[in-house]
Design a protein around this nucleic acid. Sequence first.
DNA 1: TTGCTTCTGATATCGCATGCACTTGATGCA
DNA 2: TGCATCAAGTGCATGCGATATCAGAAGCAA
Lengths: 260, 260
Amino acid sequence: MNISRAKSGASRSVNDPTAKGKGPPASGEAATISRTEAVQDGLRQAIIEQRLQPGAKLPEDAIGDAFGTSRTIAREALGRLAVEGLVELKPNRGAFVANPTLDEGRDVFVVRRGLERIVTECLAGRLKPGEIAVLRDHVARELAVSGHNEVESIRLAGEFHLLLARLTGNQVLVRYVTEVVSRCSLILAMYGRPHSSDCGVSEHGEIVDALIAGNAGRACELMDHHLAAVASRALLQEKAERDIRDVLAPYAARIRGLGA
Amino acid sequence: MNISRAKSGASRSVNDPTAKGKGPPASGEAATISRTEAVQDGLRQAIIEQRLQPGAKLPEDAIGDAFGTSRTIAREALGRLAVEGLVELKPNRGAFVANPTLDEGRDVFVVRRGLERIVTECLAGRLKPGEIAVLRDHVARELAVSGHNEVESIRLAGEFHLLLARLTGNQVLVRYVTEVVSRCSLILAMYGRPHSSDCGVSEHGEIVDALIAGNAGRACELMDHHLAAVASRALLQEKAERDIRDVLAPYAARIRGLGA
DNA sequence: TTGCTTCTGATATCGCATGCACTTGATGCA
DNA sequence: TGCATCAAGTGCATGCGATATCAGAAGCAA
């Protein structure tokens, strides 16, 4: 009844052409495909924020219900998230929140460092005054919430990197950086230390300075160190025992001890 | 009748788990989702080989018919190709083969150079004997067809870069490189000179040599020059007048001349 | 009357929901 | 422990309403 047709208010409101940020009919990836994208974005957010735990099952029915759409839309969104690497599709079994291994995490960070290096090279010395203002403002906001709003802090930190990517004007780069930042968020949530998973704000500021100065070499170096630091904070072995066998190993040992 | 159900021989044969190249059930992007992927691959190939001209309409019905599936599958394949950038989706209008502008082409090449730089850094000095043999063999095959089989030559050239990416073992990298190589193929076909759109084979050989020698710096330099050369050959203005307005401009001028 | 613009109906195709068959994993039973 | 039965949920095709484009008709100006 509530899904009788596109009259469901929630999904309709989403469908209205709100954020059409792109240039008019110019570049490739045209206007959003509405509902699928809405569900995709919602799920992505939920996964990144760990509202959906890694490994959690994502039944098409349940997602359709939750978003007020049919399984068709849910299914398509899941397919795209699978391409992004945030969801794992098991044939005939369904979709699950990705549960990346530590090695996969390392791979993602390797690619991210490479991509952000391109961003840095594209931007060094080419920032316009207005863009500089936006960046400075962003860093200031990061500084403001730093220390007393963990969630927002992490969100802004990711946003900083996306902002840089967008400033290149290179849509391909934007897409890839968006993807790896998402995946890194998930990986950080899984393996990072609870309270150090955000970027160092001061490092962001330094990077902006180097970009403005037009010192490409230094900017790249700073960015790379910055990401290396994030990665090393993220990819700690300590929380890497998500694998059930590792988690259960000590218990199993205890039991074996009893038996012996 | 022929689409009564999964009895259609063509699509079934495709569905059988043939190429499951990936490691068993290990990493993220699990087993292929069969039919959708088959259609996606078929369309991708057709686009890259220019059997489907840039800008050509891709109706769901027609694609479904062609592949012996329903619109559902065709639709999903088109959606994924849109994410890849090979297809453009216009809301309520349908799908079209991407028609990238020269600027978009440049963007893709920028990202490709960055990605392949990562590949090179990952590989330098770490190739195992078996892998070296595979690479040498591939270059030899490129040399063999070079000059008298344009199509195969281009295919092998792209394959060389994919091969390198795969050797890194980094699945994220593999996916991104695969995508940009596809898009570069399309761009080369659109804007490149007819007979120089393939990679220089000798350059491939040199890159392999540098990788084996473990000279990361030189390998990166070679790779970057190589791709810069490909890009410069590709992104010529001369064929950039695909935009109808540009193509017709001289004719319009003539008419205006008559009128005046 | 001729040519141009605008309106309206027809058609093709999309967006989405839903139904049916089939696979998979679970449960009960020998 | 091994096997048959069953339920849950995916995989896919298809139907229905919606939307955009196009052809032709009507209206209007020259």
